[in-house]
Nucleic acid binder design. Structure first.
Lengths: 136, 136
DNA sequence: TCCCCGATCTGGACTTTGTCTAATTCCCGG
DNA sequence: CCGGGAATTAGACAAAGTCCAGATCGGGGA
């Protein structure tokens, strides 16, 4: 599947999102790379040629994508929030020194023994974050 | 065990920390409550009677405690970083709506299948954060 | 085609959380 | 009592994100 602008528009419509220019560009930035990007990085990518999208729109759009289940939010550090185009269940490995974030396939990780949720509560997300650093 | 100032001083010394007034007050705030507190909350508690400890000192001290293994850092939300006086292995349940953070006993959770760490890397921390919200 | 109107986008001011720095204060050993 | 290194301080600063009032877009109907 190619991450063309047209395909992005279809993807957005499929998630009940009105596909505007800006939203298509932001989706394209995330999905064509298949990487974890911060809001800042998205801004930079979208505005490489010439300024096209404002800060407010980037933040609003990422939040919209999040609400609509198009992306996942990965919080690894205060002031290091990433948006992940991969919404399949998986976990994360975070290298403290370098800031590099990579995936841990959920298929290989078995989590059991979680307590029952409090009444009337539903899970919004489960993320096992393994924080590693270079040995001293 | 009572969380007296004197006991706090001993605790700090045991972790190779020079027990100053401010450090004792901050330790007392965290340990006497046995709760997850943010830097802000620590500030508020320590300065209830009259201003005694500066913002810089609160942040410096929390980071020092972290380095010395006296507390754990729990990152659940951007701009919601908590300090946890319980350093035993355990995980966290976070209620998105209310901001309430509670513990999940690690004894009951079994995690297996984690991939090997990259060469020369050591684990700094593992936290399984389960994010829940009230059902729509 | 042209117009209208709600949806969207925008710049910029603002807030919050945390960092930095240079100056001061504390406190211990001599 | 004194000197000096450790600790603390106020306040300026930085980074990330929020908010708002006004401008702009673009699709449907005349």
């Amino acid at each position: 599947m190619h991450y063309t602008r047209d395909n992005m528009a279809t993807l957005l419509r499929g998630h009940d999102i009105n596909p505007t220019h800006q939203r298509i560009e932001i989706a394209h930035a995330l999905f064509s790379r298949q990487e974890h990007l911060s809001a800042d990085q998205v801004m930079a990518i979208v505005n490489t040629r010439h300024s096209e999208t404002s800060k407010a729109t980037v933040y609003n759009t990422l939040k919209l994508f999040l609400d609509k289940g198009l992306v996942r939010e990965v919080i690894v550090d205060p002031s290091k929030v990433f948006y992940d185009p991969n919404t399949l269940p998986h976990h994360h490995l975070y290298e403290v020194d370098t800031g590099k974030l990579s995936d841990i396939d959920a298929m290989h990780v078995r989590i059991s023994g979680l307590p029952d949720l409090p009444d009337g509560m539903v899970t919004e997300g489960i993320d096992l974050i393994v924080r590693v650093r270079r040995a001293a």
